[in-house]
Amino acid sequence: MAQRLAMEYVNATMQMTEFQLNQFLLTADTSYISHRVKVLGAGEQEIVLEEAGGEEVHLSFERRGGVYIGSLSCRVVNPHLINAVRKLFFTYKGTGTVNRIYKDLTMMYYYEAGSVRRISEVRPGGIKLIYQHKYSLAEMASVFKLQTVEREIAQIRQEINSLLDTRNRCQQEAVIREVDERLAEAAHRLFRLEA
């Protein structure tokens, strides 16, 4: 088995509540890892995880409402620090690219909300796709539902065209008023669906 040299987090993000952030800070200190918090302007914080040997990881957290959005882009070499950052990323369902760097290759993992969506092997000779997430039943149902909306939009447009044809052919004021009311209702439904 090849020995991992480092892990790299590229444009990784995660979110947590203030309670979760405080819980993380309570458990962040171990015999190998310590932390310090820098409070920045506008409710932002920077958490620095430091390994006993001196390697550091800087995590920026921006407060939006009652949630902290953390961002992370770094390369980590120390195994204890790798483990601490990995736990943080998985616990709080991180999104982004994680590169596991070995001597002759890099394994690229793309995560979305804590789930692996794609794995690629990167070698000097090129990139090879190892795994790609396929749609789950729930995701396929939501895609189908989106197509249902598209069909309903097409049906309303046909209805509007038919009403406009009727209005153009008709000479009676009462019929024109009724058609105008139905056109307004159909236009409102169309607007809601397209939004």
Rank of each mutant, 00 (worst) to 15 (best):
F144H: 07
Q15L: 06
R151D: 08
E46F: 00
E56W: 02
E51Y: 03
L49A: 01
S31I: 14
L49K: 00
K93Y: 13
F24H: 06
P124Y: 00
A186S: 15
K134T: 09
T106Y: 01
R151E: 10
T17A: 12
R64I: 08
S120I: 05
E181S: 09
S34H: 10
I153Y: 01
I127P: 04
I47H: 05
Y111R: 04
M108S: 14
S73Y: 03
A2M: 04
E194H: 02
V98R: 01
L146C: 05
L137W: 12
S73V: 04
R177V: 01
G125R: 07
I130M: 12
V98Q: 04
E112M: 13
R177A: 07
A154E: 13
L190Y: 02
R157T: 01
A174F: 04
R123T: 15
Y102P: 00
I47R: 03
D29H: 10
L88E: 01
H133T: 06
V10C: 11
L81D: 02
A84M: 14
L193V: 00
V116C: 14
F90P: 01
Q132T: 12
G66H: 06
F191L: 10
G126Y: 02
L40S: 06
N22Q: 15
M140P: 02
S136H: 11
E139G: 09
L59V: 02
I130W: 07
N22Y: 09
M107F: 12
L81M: 07
V143W: 08
E55P: 03
V179A: 14
R167V: 03
K145Y: 13
L26Q: 15
L5N: 10
E50Q: 15
G43A: 07
A12R: 00
K128E: 13
R151K: 05
N161Q: 10
N83Q: 14
C74L: 01
P124S: 03
K87E: 14
E50R: 10
L25R: 00
E55W: 09
R75D: 06
N78L: 05
A187M: 05
I101Q: 02
I69P: 00
N11K: 13
G65C: 08
Q171E: 12
R151G: 03
